[in-house]
Design a binder for these strands. Structure first.
Length: 598
RNA sequence: GGGGACGUAGCUCAAUUGGUUAGAGUACCAGAUUGUCGAUCUGGGUGUUGCGGGUUCGAGUCCCGUCGUCCCCGCCA
């Protein structure tokens, strides 16, 4: 139907007879001559209709409206030099047309389809008409980027000897971790499949099967609450390798990320990517996914306050807590109302409050705590924090973990407020040596990563005596404060795996029921192996500078996990429920509300 | 589950202390217009103020409930 796309005609095509197809972007009717900007995913070309060329074509052009689908035939002509449009790649030419076919008409779109206007439109409307939203150049670009990056990843991994293997979407629920999406079985009444939270066990079994290097662009499902960077279904670049150390994984991912940065047009990055131990990440940045685009690290000032008159700090230190500080350089003029907001945030994060000192340009310390500070403490703080006139210093005092987390959050918003975060910068870091276990709310041990994660060999001695001290061979890759992915070296020894389950307090019968297949498999010669999974949506989001992974997913869900275009989830027929042996037990208060079937 | 922001024309927004017929830009429709490219000019308001209830002489505005979207906390091995 077409000889060219709407993005490719140049001066070199002048004189050629061409056929173009696309959507009407705009119609400019001058009474005589009519201009139509014709758009497809490749670009925009100006088409000119003159009644002297063809009255019939002119009539149809005049009747065309935005988003009509048309096909035109015409001759490529140069534009007079002063009428070229530098905003268009095709701006030096136009197509003089005497033939136009309206392939399809369009209703008036419910919102403007140009990027600038659409950015202001409420997101629910864009989602309800996602197919129109996707017509916008920005969304076309995002989807195209996504495609190109996945292509680059596949080529890279193929060359590195990886095999792409699909694993089941209908699998078995594993009660740890996230809530599962369940699929009822019709054939076996009362039983359910679960959609995979990740292909974790399958990929480990593939190592056992001898597939050496596996990868998959894997869809994963987690029934948890949504965020800007979390969707109930998302995509991972999932991989697993046999006979590897963490170094091997770092090397492969470093190379992969370098390729992706290049494919996204962000140039070369220095390799190897920087690394940081988990403890350092927590102590310096207060996060296991530190944003290392800027400094403003935490400093432990407990020693400065060793004999302090300040009761709050003294009390914390007496109980074995710490006092840590952030110096927001040059932010001494931060308003009290902002400080109130940040204090509320600190309290929300578990601190009793947020002590702070605003240093005036003259060097005067303006602070509710200033009068309690001794000269020695003043000097100690000045020296240790490099305090200068105009600085803002904030303190957190509590248990180490609480202070770290709370000040870590304050660091991010204070850094943002101070304009320290360069949105064009890409700062990667590995975070290594995660703890193997953590305590949950009930005080029980649970696996920080997952129960198949291998402990550090040198920490094995503490596995029973001091499990919280045991480090895992687990690692995350972080970009600009976003967790891009994580993985670990797995346990391949069935005895150690059984020991892990025991330490985690999983009863023997339950181990057999939930993991018996895995332990049995590991009894048949499991190679040492490890892997990693990268969140593809987050990666693409960061590469295209998006605010949310919804920007890089063609058909995302809302915060209530609804698809506003399909109207999913929806009710189903009683017969469908009977087939899968399900009887509904709905809350009584408002049975009429909720998503209607449709 | 909790905290916060928002909901008025197709879209983005305005509307004084609760006060007359709810406006503007844009889109849309009609007409004019032969070099525009955010075309221009003239004319046209197309509205269940998300929904339900309440207070009031009178509600877009106040109160209660509810629905929806977004951000954050919890949650996400």
């Amino acid at each position: 139907m077409r000889s060219h796309t709407c993005g490719e005609l140049r001066k070199s095509h002048v004189g050629q007879r061409v056929q173009l197809c696309g959507w009407v972007d705009t119609v400019r009717d001058h009474g005589g001559v009519i201009f139509i900007d014709l758009r497809d995913r490749y670009g925009v070309t100006q088409v000119i209709f003159d009644p002297r060329d063809s009255q019939e074509a002119w009539d149809r052009a005049q009747g065309s409206r935005g988003e009509y689908v048309i096909r035109i035939e015409g001759t490529v002509e140069p534009r007079p030099a002063d009428m070229a449009n530098p905003k268009l790649a095709t701006g030096e030419i136009e197509v003089r047309s005497n033939t136009i076919t309206v392939l399809n008409r369009s209703a008036t779109p419910p919102f403007p389809l140009d990027d600038e206007e659409a950015a202001k439109v409420s997101e629910d409307l864009r989602m309800a008409y996602r197919y129109l939203d996707l017509r916008r150049p920005q969304m076309q670009k995002n989807m195209r980027y996504r495609h190109e990056m996945v292509q680059a990843i596949r080529v890279y991994l193929d060359r590195a000897g990886f095999t792409d293997i699909e694993t089941p979407m209908m699998t078995k629920s594993t009660p740890e971790g996230a809530r599962d999406y369940l699929v009822p079985s019709r054939i076996l009444p009362g039983t359910f499949y679960a959609l995979p939270q990740s292909p974790q066990q399958y990929k480990q079994l593939l190592m056992l099967a001898g597939f050496d290097r596996y990868y998959q662009v894997a869809r994963c499902f987690r029934d948890e609450d949504l965020r800007a960077d979390r969707q109930p279904e998302f995509t991972q670049i999932d991989m697993e390798l046999s006979f590897v150390t963490p170094e091997d994984i770092y090397g492969i991912i470093d190379g992969l990320l370098a390729i992706i940065m290049k494919a996204a047009g962000h140039g070369e990055i220095a390799l190897p990517l920087p690394r940081m131990k988990y403890d350092d990440a927590m102590n310096r940045f207060g996060s296991d996914k530190p944003d290392v685009r800027f400094g403003m690290e935490m400093t432990d000032v407990s020693d400065v306050f060793a004999g302090t008159q300040l009761k709050v700090f003294a009390g914390v230190l007496a109980k074995g807590g710490v006092v840590k500080a952030l110096n927001a350089k040059g932010q001494g003029n931060t308003s009290l109302s902002v400080m109130d907001d940040w204090t509320a945030m600190a309290k929300d994060a578990g601190l009793g409050g947020l002590a702070y000192i605003r240093v005036s340009p003259e060097g005067e310390w303006k602070s509710p705590i200033a009068k309690f500070l001794s000269e020695g403490e003043r000097q100690g703080l000045t020296k240790k924090l490099g305090m200068q006139p105009g600085d803002l210093v904030m303190f957190g005092a509590d248990k180490l973990a609480t202070v770290n987390t709370a000040l870590g959050r304050i660091r991010l918003i204070a850094g943002e407020a101070a304009g320290l975060i360069d949105p064009k910068k890409f700062a990667f870091t590995w975070v290594t040596d995660f703890p193997l276990f953590e305590r949950n709310d009930e005080g029980e041990l649970q696996a920080m990563h997952h129960p198949f994660t291998s402990p550090h060999a040198e920490d094995l001695a503490f596995l029973d005596s001091d499990p919280l001290r045991v480090r895992a061979q687990a690692y995350d890759i972080v970009l600009n404060g976003v967790e891009l992915g994580g993985g670990s070296i797995r346990i391949h020894d069935p005895e150690l795996q059984a020991r892990m389950f025991k330490i985690l307090g999983i009863p023997t019968a339950e181990i057999e029921d939930r993991f018996g297949h895995l332990i049995r498999a590991f009894g048949y010669g499991a190679p040492p192996h490890g892997g990693i999974a990268l969140g593809l949506d987050r990666l693409i989001m960061l590469m295209v500078g998006g605010e949310s992974i919804r920007d890089v997913i063609a058909f995302p869900k809302t915060q209530k996990a609804m698809d506003l275009m399909m109207n999913a989830p929806a009710r189903v027929d009683a017969k469908q429920l009977r087939d899968v042996h399900i009887r509904l037990d709905l809350p009584v208060e408002n049975p009429a509300t909720g998503p209607a079937s449709g």
